[in-house]
Design a protein around this nucleic acid. Structure first.
Lengths: 143, 143
DNA sequence: CGGCATCCCATAAGATACTG
DNA sequence: CAGTATCTTATGGGATGCCG
């Protein structure tokens, strides 16, 4: 089968582990860095391994490799070995990967708006530490 | 505090654990049953605890409870105690939850098409036309 | 340069039993 | 009915080191 998909994904499909198609889609993008990788590939064009590391400084060597491998196995990203001397590999987004971008964009929008909302309402509320700090500061002032 | 959000989510937000907004959105829906719960609440109206269990026979009692609790804490779902005698609780989707539905629908569509592709093309190669169709359809939707 | 192998830990989720 | 409590397992991800 030329259209390889990660075996565990295929197994889950066949064993009915995904009770609906949305979960399958979720599985495609739910690695910690996958959406970011896809987004940048779509936005900037080809990347190489260490380009990603510069882009996402906190990602581990190993984890980055696994995310890229899974994306490639799921056909969302194409991996190409360019040289053999100091081994050089390029990653590009595939048409299939591109077809996922609108979803990612929507998630981006939704997240931004929601975070803004939270920032606004958070002041009054959430952070107990902040409230506590304010109390302490008030106490200092009166002291 | 009027707008509660799960503490770990807020902590991650504040500690910069989400390197972008899409990951925050992903966190909202990436419980194993959350999208399904949201989808059905949006589609069918209010549900009660054991309604969900009938709907998703394989979900564990405990896991269902935790998914619902998180959804409620994230303000995507509203929990209402209706009775106190044999305790009766209703779950409804909130406007915020509804705002997430278009994303879930897109994921649903994408997944269905991709699964069909895989069934059909498992022996052939990836059909770019199909991916292209998906792009066009996605474009139409956003238009 | 671009990996893989190994070990370790945190968290998600399943099984089971108990409760207001 | 609608949960909580406890225990256990599976998985994702981080840290580190070796390799072609």
């Amino acid at each position: 089968m030329t259209d390889i998909v990660r075996k565990d994904v295929m197994q889950r499909l066949e064993s009915g582990d995904y009770s609906c198609a949305k979960q399958f889609t979720l599985a495609m993008i739910s690695g910690k860095w996958k959406m970011i990788i896809l987004w940048h590939l779509n936005h900037d064009g080809a990347y190489r391994f260490n380009d990603f590391r510069r882009l996402m400084p906190t990602v581990t060597h190993k984890v980055l490799a696994s995310q890229l491998r899974e994306l490639a196995e799921d056909q969302l990203v194409k991996r190409t070995e360019v040289q053999a001397k100091p081994l050089k590999v390029e990653y590009e987004i595939t048409p299939l990967g591109t077809s996922l971008v609108p979803i990612i964009d929507m998630m981006c929008d939704w997240g931004e708006k929601r975070i803004d909302q939270l920032k606004v309402t958070t002041h009054f509320s959430l952070d107990e530490n902040v409230a506590q700090q304010m109390n302490e500061q008030a106490a200092e002032k009166t002291a």
